[in-house]
């Protein structure tokens, strides 16, 4: 799952290294429109629909938080 997440993030913003241990939102690596595109890609890749109430910046701040979000929303 982590590899797939990193691949999607890198395709979205190729100028950043998403393996770094930083806050993607605070560091400006993802803005709100990136999050929209990211959710669309994650939904499609993992065949889920991330709950709208979970689309909050803190859930997209790191690989760990994205992984937790996916598992909460039924990704396998």
């Amino acid at each position: 799952m982590r590899e797939k997440i990193i691949k999607i993030l890198t395709e979205l913003r190729p100028e950043f290294d998403f393996n770094e241990d930083v806050d993607f939102i605070d560091e400006g690596m993802l803005d709100s429109f990136d999050v929209v595109n990211l959710v669309t890609e994650l939904d499609s890749t993992f065949e889920i629909s991330i709950d709208g109430v979970d689309i909050l910046p803190e859930n997209f701040a790191s690989i760990d938080s994205i992984e937790k979000l996916l598992i909460k929303n039924g990704a396998k």
Partner: peptide, 10 residues
């Protein structure tokens, strides 16, 4: 469209 699709799914 994104917001409406999320509402429909929910």
């Amino acid at each position: 469209k994104f917001m409406l699709n999320k509402l429909a799914d929910k």
